[in-house]
Amino acid sequence: MSSVQQDQQRPQQTIKGNVLTARGWVSGHISFSEKIDDIQGEPGDPGSNNAVYILPGFIDLHVHGAGGKDTMEAGDAVEVISRMHAQHGTTSMLATTMTAPMSDLEAALHALAGVCQQRSAGSARVLGVHLEGPYINPGKLGAQPDFAHAGSLEQVKQLDAIAPIKLITLAPEVEGNLAMVSQLTALGMRVQLGHTLGTYEDGVAALENGASSFTHLYNAMSRLDHRSPGMVGAALAHANFAEIIPDLLHVHPGAIKAAMRAIPKVYCVTDSTSASGMPDGEYMLGRQVVHKCLGGVRLADGTLAGSTLTMDQALRNLVKIGLELDDASKRVSTYAADFLGLSDRGRLQVNAYADLVVLDRDLNLVAVYIEGEKIELKDV
């Protein structure tokens, strides 16, 4: 029996509390089965009561791993990864690959194909693939292995035939990549600029050709200088979307706020690795060995290599640095859905999927629902 058939049999459920709807806060209740059936209540300030918060489920468009598993391992890795992130309120995600030889990418996507078609109980919905490389600048690898090369539309089509590619990170200054941007967008894929030494002008040209976002803004890209604005300058001056890692290690809170003031729909990602949810030690990120310690993940030379962030902590971090809860919620959910063109996720409204999180007054998870399924939370 397919997951859709199972979901259609879900009984209707109702939760009371402060519901963050697409039109603002409502003090009342939300009813749902697989999708949201009804929201009733009065508009109100959640600060006027002690009821729980009910928010859209989190959407993470940059997930490499968790629970000791890495997307590039293939096998059952993504099942483990999606279950672990569901425990932290992620209801939808993109499984993210690393720069690697074509044979490795094909193996990883073959393992992802079935997971993208059908969601397993207890797991986040895997919407598709974020192909991070290999079409990046070899001079700005960050924690990516050294298998970068110029873009190939034929390669992308081969991979997309295995599992749906929703998002590609590339460096527009690499020969041939700028022309490929418009070709990729014509295929319905989103293009982000990242792992790039490109100039401000390269960034603007890529946006004009259809690129629509920036990968882990500020990190692994040419920096902003007042006489050489770089890729960061192109993002701040022209972008409507950009992803950012709010673990408070990758980006200073002031830089996060500057980005959110300049770019209307900055959305948060974890860039999580296999070390997420695991004790300190050695883990794999693609073909790279990474070390988890002091709350971060690094290569042997100290380079940050993804994170151990979860989306519930991302929300708390945003509130900690001064964002209002409704604004923070949009940045861990709604804006990512908007970026992918999804109107039925990332928002609490009738006929949207019943992807939602329930949080106590300290913003700790109380419950998670994915397409109406209540996730059994472990000690997170």
Score class of each variant (00 low, 15 high):
G230W: 04
N219H: 09
Q6P: 01
L325R: 07
V266F: 00
K378H: 14
K265Q: 09
A314L: 04
L61S: 04
N177Y: 07
A86G: 04
E208L: 08
I256A: 06
T96V: 08
S120A: 15
G296A: 11
H216P: 07
S182C: 04
L193Q: 15
K374C: 07
F241E: 07
A66M: 03
Y335T: 02
L105C: 03
Q12M: 12
G203N: 12
L127T: 00
E79S: 15
Q313C: 00
I168L: 07
N364L: 08
S120T: 13
Q6S: 12
L159Y: 08
H195I: 00
L323D: 00
L377Q: 12
H216A: 03
A314M: 01
L304I: 11
L224N: 01
K166W: 10
A77C: 10
C293T: 14
A74V: 09
L131C: 10
L325V: 14
H85T: 02
A148T: 10
L207V: 03
Y267H: 12
A171Y: 13
A143R: 07
R223L: 06
I263S: 02
V366M: 13
G122K: 14
R83Q: 15
I15D: 09
V126N: 12
G44C: 04
A186W: 05
Q87D: 02
H130V: 01
S2N: 14
T334F: 06
G286F: 06
A262R: 05
L109R: 12
K265R: 13
V26Y: 01
K378D: 11
E154T: 10
M284L: 15
Q183V: 04
S276A: 15
P164M: 01
A205Y: 10
P229N: 02
Q192E: 15
E201N: 15
V266L: 06
D37L: 12
M102N: 01
S343R: 03
D338V: 00
G67T: 05
V52G: 07
S27T: 06
R190E: 13
A352H: 05
V204P: 15
A352L: 06
Q5D: 12
M260Y: 03
A111I: 10
A205V: 11
F58C: 01
D45F: 03
R261A: 05
Y200C: 03
V290Q: 04
T215F: 05
E42V: 13
Q117F: 01
I244L: 15
L55G: 01
V290S: 11
P138N: 13
K35I: 12
G75R: 09
G210Q: 04
D37I: 05
Q12S: 15
A206L: 13
M260E: 01
R223C: 02
G233V: 02
L187W: 10
G322R: 13
L61N: 08
I244F: 13
D312G: 00
A234N: 07
L217G: 09
H250W: 07
E34M: 14
N351S: 13
A143N: 08
A237T: 08
V350H: 05
K16P: 12
E201R: 13
K140Q: 14
G65P: 15
V156P: 03
M231V: 03
G41W: 03
M102S: 05
M93S: 05
T21I: 07
I245H: 07
V289P: 08
G281Y: 01
T71G: 09
T185W: 09
R347V: 07
H226K: 11
G306Y: 12
D338M: 08
A148M: 11
